[in-house]
Structure formats: structure tokens, C-alpha cells
Nucleic acid binder design. Structure first.
Length: 366
DNA sequence: GTATAACTGATGCTACCACT
DNA sequence: AGTGGTAGCATCAGTTATAC
């Protein structure tokens, strides 16, 4: 899998303020302009076709989930063993996503980052759209405990030799606290070899900025799946039962169905789901790429009709045009490209960077 | 800007209930 | 017996007021 660029959909999926009774409100945006990446950790397992299957590693439940999960495929086994504190939840994954994004950002600057990251707890909380209260920090330590405690065991058979690997999602976390005034927490997280390798080999996908604003855990999981399977394609279909499996939901199918139904209904009326529109009919869930929907054909340009801009370039664009919403700039640039009659570009990346640079020089945002 | 406590509200899952 | 709905549980998330 390779990196894909993330389109901006703020125009079609507007942030919704609180409203009326029927709502699954998106959480408020606390920290704009942050690029976030995700890596499907299981993709990092070498030499087997299991990597292409998704197995839910993270719990959707809010209650501690201490059940072991076991997946078997062609004689290969993956087991996910929670600690006494329970399986890492999809919210705990936020922390991983943040760490991964930090790594990718460093790599995009040409650095070769190590496995250990040093962070300010506050930055992380803000970036992952969490509260920065005492509870926020307490939850952070709980989350790190769960990440550390969740064990993954795999056996991979290649050429008659069986290799078993046992590891956690993170290797170590250290929290340093200045107690005299109770402020400032330093955080040191060592990623597991597994996650690290996945990032280094760029098995990452960009996430929509609204990902962290999805409140329902299984909604987040659905987005991840759609991101991975639908990607830039027009649409992607999946049966309810399989979706539940891939989500890792433990509810009975009928309860899961009603949950999905609610999400679909809300998306139809409010278009809150990032990047993709979801509908369900006869237990088939259909994800349609919003960019292809042409709901606002005069404003939104279908993505397949735009020069490809890779995430690195998007990142560079941010540095040449600081303060700008680069996704909005990208949209603008694509419309300009259409207005020009879609000229063939020798280097779309260079052209886009040039566009951003010019914009910044003309009217810099202070 | 950073941190806390106390409160309100939302979550997935389970157990239970009412119906064919 | 099978189906679908939902109240309640343990937990997490958001808001407000307050402090430095």
C-alpha cells in the first residue's frame, strides 16, 4: 500500500454545530491544520497475505474488554491478548496515530527518526481533540497502560519454518511530571518495532481532519475501513456481517445493524461522515466518495480529474504558505487548472508548490 | 495557557422485554 | 423459537466554574 493524498471536504461536510434533537454531533475542532496519518499496524507483518486482511486490534467498547481475539488464515494465526486493564480502545489509538504522524512529519523533513518520541502531553491532547483537564491526563496514562499491555502474537510460516512473534503496541512510555506547580507533562513513548517499521516503510494513510471529531468508536473504524478500501475510488460496498467482523464489534448483528442504520440516517441528513457518504440497503453498506458525488458540481472537482499531489508535497505546501489551509489552496489550484483547460503538467507537485508560494508572497497570513 | 473538580450527557454492549 | 427493541451498566467525553 502506498500513501494517498487526502482531499479536503470541508465544503461538503461542514462542521456541524449543536442542533436540534437528532444528532450525533461532531466534536468541536480544537486544533486545526494538523496532518494526521494512520498505519494499519497489521500491515507491517512481513511475508504473508494476512497483512492485506484487516483484523480489529482495538476495542470499540467503553468497558474494559478482556477477551482474547484469535484470527486464523491459511495456517497463520494472529492473537490479540489484552492485559488486565483491557484491550486498547480505538481512543487509545489516537495516541498511536499522533506518534505516527510525528514520525511521518520528521521523515518528510528528511530526517531518519528513531523509535522513541519525546512529546508534550498537552500538544498530544490538543492534537487528538481531547480535553486538557486532569481527567484528560489520567485517561492518557490509562490509555498508555492499555497500549503497553495489549499483546499481539503471530506465527508466520514461510518455507517450512515457523516464526512466532510476541509484542505490544508500544514498547515503553515514560511520563515526567513537574509536581511543584502541577504543570507541564513530558511524555516519552517508544513505539514497538512493528509499528515503527510500518511507518518507516510508509504503510500509512492520511486521515481526514474530522476523524478525531467522530465520536462513535465504530464510526471511526468504519472510516478507517472506507479510507483503506474505498480510497480514491468512487464507491465501495460491504456486507453488514463482514463489516461487523472488520469493525470488531461484539454486539449481536441486529444491534449492530441498528447502530449502522443510525449512522447512515444521520449521514444522509447531515453529511457528517468525512470523505464518504454512507447508505445501507438490504444489509449492504455502500460508501460513496463525496468527491465523485458531484453534489456541488460547480464547486467540487472530481478528484480523478486532478493532477496527483502526494502527501509530502501537501506538507511542503504548508511550509511555503504558512497559515493557509492547504486543502483549500489545493481545491483552488485544481479549479484554476481546470480553468486553464487542464494543461499537461511536467511536475504537478512543483506547479502546486509554486502556486502556494505565489499566494503566500502576495498575501501572507500573519 | 495550563490544570482541577463537579457535573451532564453519550457510548457499546448486555440482559431483558414484548411481539410474532 | 425466533426477532427486534431498549433500559441499564460501566465508562468515557464535554461543559462550566475556578485558580494561578
Amino acid at each position: 500500500m502506498t500513501i494517498e493524498s487526502s482531499p479536503s471536504l470541508f465544503d461538503i461536510a461542514p462542521s456541524l454545530a449543536m442542533e436540534g434533537e437528532d444528532r450525533t454531533p461532531l466534536l468541536p475542532v480544537r486544533h486545526p491544520n494538523q496532518d494526521l496519518f494512520i498505519c494499519d499496524v497489521l500491515d507491517a507483518i512481513p511475508k504473508d497475505d494476512m497483512a492485506s486482511m484487516e483484523h480489529p486490534v482495538f476495542s470499540l467498547s467503553t468497558k474494559p474488554d478482556t477477551r482474547m481475539r484469535r484470527y486464523e488464515h491459511n495456517g497463520n494465526i494472529i492473537e490479540i491478548i489484552p492485559s488486565g486493564k483491557g484491550l486498547a480502545t480505538i481512543h487509545d489509538k489516537d495516541i498511536l496515530i499522533y506518534c505516527i504522524s510525528q514520525l511521518v512529519a520528521k521523515m518528510n523533513h528528511g530526517e531518519q527518526p528513531g523509535r522513541t518520541l519525546r512529546l508534550q502531553a498537552y500538544d498530544m491532547l490538543v492534537a487528538t481533540n481531547r480535553q486538557t483537564s486532569g481527567a484528560g491526563y489520567r485517561l492518557l496514562t490509562d490509555a498508555l497502560t492499555r497500549l503497553r499491555g495489549t499483546t499481539v502474537r503471530t506465527n508466520i510460516q514461510t518455507g517450512g519454518i515457523e516464526e512466532t512473534r510476541i509484542f505490544g503496541l508500544i514498547e515503553e512510555a515514560r511520563i515526567t511530571r513537574k509536581t511543584f506547580d502541577g504543570r507541564m507533562l513530558d511524555l516519552e513513548i517508544t513505539l514497538s518495532e512493528w509499528v515503527y517499521r510500518s511507518v518507516i516503510s510508509k504503510n500509512v494513510l492520511t486521515l481526514h481532519r474530522d476523524y478525531f471529531r467522530l465520536r462513535k468508536p465504530f464510526e471511526r473504524r468504519m472510516y478507517e475501513l472506507a479510507r483503506k478500501h474505498c480510497g480514491m475510488k468512487d464507491e465501495w460496498k460491504i456486507g453488514l456481517e463482514l463489516l461487523q467482523k472488520k469493525c470488531g464489534s461484539n454486539s449481536p448483528l441486529r444491534v449492530f445493524r441498528s447502530l449502522v442504520k443510525k449512522v447512515c440516517a444521520h449521514d444522509t441528513s447531515h453529511a457528517h461522515f468525512p470523505d464518504y457518504a454512507i447508505t445501507m440497503a438490504d444489509d449492504i453498506i455502500l460508501f460513496r466518495n463525496r468527491l465523485s458525488l458531484n453534489t456541488k458540481a460547480d464547486v467540487i472537482v472530481p478528484v480523478r480529474d486532478a493532477p496527483y499531489i502526494d502527501p509530502e508535497t501537501m506538507h511542503d505546501a504548508k511550509t511555503v504558505a504558512p497559515g493557509y489551509d492547504i486543502y483549500a489552496l489545493h481545491d483552488e489550484w485544481v479549479s484554476w487548472w481546470h480553468d486553464m483547460g487542464k494543461p499537461e503538467l511536467k511536475s504537478p507537485a512543483g506547479a502546486f508548490i509554486g502556486f502556494c508560494k505565489k499566494r503566500h508572497e502576495r498575501s501572507p497570513i500573519r
